[in-house]
Design a binder for these strands. Structure first.
Length: 435
RNA sequence: GCACGGAUGUCAGAGUGGCUAUGAGCGGGACUGCAGAUCCUGAGACCGGAGUUCGAAUCUCCGUCCGUGCUCCA
């Protein structure tokens, strides 16, 4: 919701140049970054929000709220800006972090002396900052300047939600001081509490066990990763852990996710293809104790579907939900590969498709649309180029194999490998793909 | 130092006082000329110590280690 790029699970661009470093054209920079952000989020199948407010369009509101806080005795003007006076609402202190006012004082040590010189108290935070050279500025009753960071979020969120809203997200690092400040500002301004009912703070994405940071050089953007794996695989990897936990982004995690995703996708495709008739017959009643194998399987799947819903209802326990989906995949594969009457198989396939679309696709967002899932991978132009050659070699190899000339067959497989093709023998014959 | 989280098999990672998931990896089996893929199956863990309890991965306390925040910027 109202998060900065820093709190996104993975930073979207490399560019994080501050406005001071540019020769005035900071608006174009902002537009470029926002465009890149949308592209990355779309690729990851993240639904667009209803509104994407931009703080530069809310400066008037920020000024108005700041003035109101001054009028109500919660803020004061100093020589270098306007500050929120934290002691004016001490009961609100530490709501998110459990820190007492005294604890913060000792933690801050001597480091506050040379900053925010106009503050009456080191705990106070800026609502408005007087202009500094080369910075973009706006006019205000307290002279030209720019808003403080925290007031931006308050102005935008209250404009959309009036005085309270249900869920406020953000990175774990923003709990203090940013979100605490939002509580002070919002509740003191409206006189209504709580301004936020539920705070959702996500853990960080680390790289190989280390915090992702530019100085360490271990910076992976979404785009970097999408050159290596499918967007659905990255999404699968990101929901591998609970959103509150830190997650370590590395090759092993992506490989793991790729494997699981392929199992899921393979099962989905198999179920889609098993729907041979658009009007399915009635299936047996789901019943774990049923003597009918199909009834029992349906009972199992129903139970896993309930477990899935319970997990997601419990503070978005995505890992638990993924486990349930993989359990469904196993059971569905088993049933589709088992002995079934044609009508039952068709009906079960309809049921399985619906179940996977409801859970893996609609809720978790880790399944592509049907037409994409069913698209033949030969669309790859590199594959089309060598297809005839490969098919010819495969015919030769099949002949050699049926003649039990294993050395000839293996030599052909080596030739194919030299072309960059991997052959896999399956129950229905050899399949090939680019390595 | 203070605050808030966390520590679960080889790895990743859920877990509701009694039964523990899921996936990878590893072992066994089916299918395979071989490899791979697929399917079935097995073994394998709750950081250390104390306490509460008939019973603790789960609750309490102590310890150790790890993460984040505690000045500015966003």
């Amino acid at each position: 919701m109202f998060t900065t790029s820093k709190t996104s699970p993975i930073s979207t661009t490399r560019s994080s140049i501050g406005p001071n470093e540019l020769d005035g054209d900071w608006k174009a920079l902002v537009d470029r970054n926002i465009e890149a952000y949308y592209e990355d989020m779309d690729a990851l199948n993240i639904l667009r929000a209803d509104a994407y407010p931009r703080c530069t369009e809310y400066v008037d509101d920020m000024v108005r709220i700041t003035q109101d806080l001054i009028d109500k005795g919660h803020a004061y003007e100093a020589n270098d800006g306007v500050y929120f006076h934290v002691e004016s609402a001490p009961e609100k202190y530490g709501q998110l972090t459990g820190q007492s006012i005294d604890a913060v004082r000792s933690g801050a040590g001597g480091r506050v002396d040379d900053t925010g010189s106009g503050k009456r108290d080191h705990k106070d935070f800026a609502l408005w900052k007087a202009a500094k050279p080369d910075e973009p500025t706006w006019d205000s009753p307290w002279g030209p300047g720019r808003p403080g960071w925290h007031i931006e979020c308050t102005a935008m969120s209250l404009d959309h939600f009036e005085k309270e809203f249900d869920i406020h997200g953000g990175g774990h690092d923003l709990r203090f001081p940013h979100h605490e400040a939002e509580i002070f500002q919002g509740e003191c301004h409206t006189g209504h509490a709580p301004v936020v009912h539920h705070w959702l703070h996500n853990g960080f994405v680390n790289i190989d066990g280390e915090k992702m940071s530019k100085s360490l050089g271990n910076f992976w953007t979404v785009r970097d990763i999408l050159t290596k794996v499918d967007a659905m695989v990255l999404r699968f990897a990101l929901i591998n852990a609970h959103y509150r936990s830190p997650i370590d982004m590395n090759e092993a995690l992506l490989n793991d996710a790729e494997r699981n995703y392929n199992r899921l996708l393979g099962c989905y495709v198999e179920a889609l293809k098993a729907r041979t008739d658009p009007s399915p017959v009635a299936l047996p009643h789901p019943d774990l104790a049923s003597p009918l194998p199909l009834g029992k399987s349906l009972g199992l799947l129903e139970k896993m579907g309930e477990g899935f819903a319970r997990a997601m209802d419990d503070d978005f326990n995505s890992r638990e939900a993924v486990a349930k989906v993989l359990g469904m995949v196993r059971e569905i594969t088993k049933v589709l590969n088992g002995a079934l009457e044609a009508a039952d198989r068709n009906a079960f396939a309809h049921y399985a498709v619906e179940l996977l679309e409801e859970t893996a696709a609609r809720v978790l967002g880790v399944l592509p649309p049907q037409e994409v899932a069913l698209a033949e991978p030969e669309d790859d132009p590199r594959k089309a180029e060598i297809a005839d050659q490969v098919e010819a070699l495969l015919v030769e190899r099949a002949e050699a194999r049926s003649a039990k000339q294993w050395d000839v067959a293996d030599r052909i497989r080596d030739e194919l490998q030299a072309l960059g093709v991997v052959v896999t023998d399956t129950a229905t014959g050899p399949e090939w793909d680019l390595a």
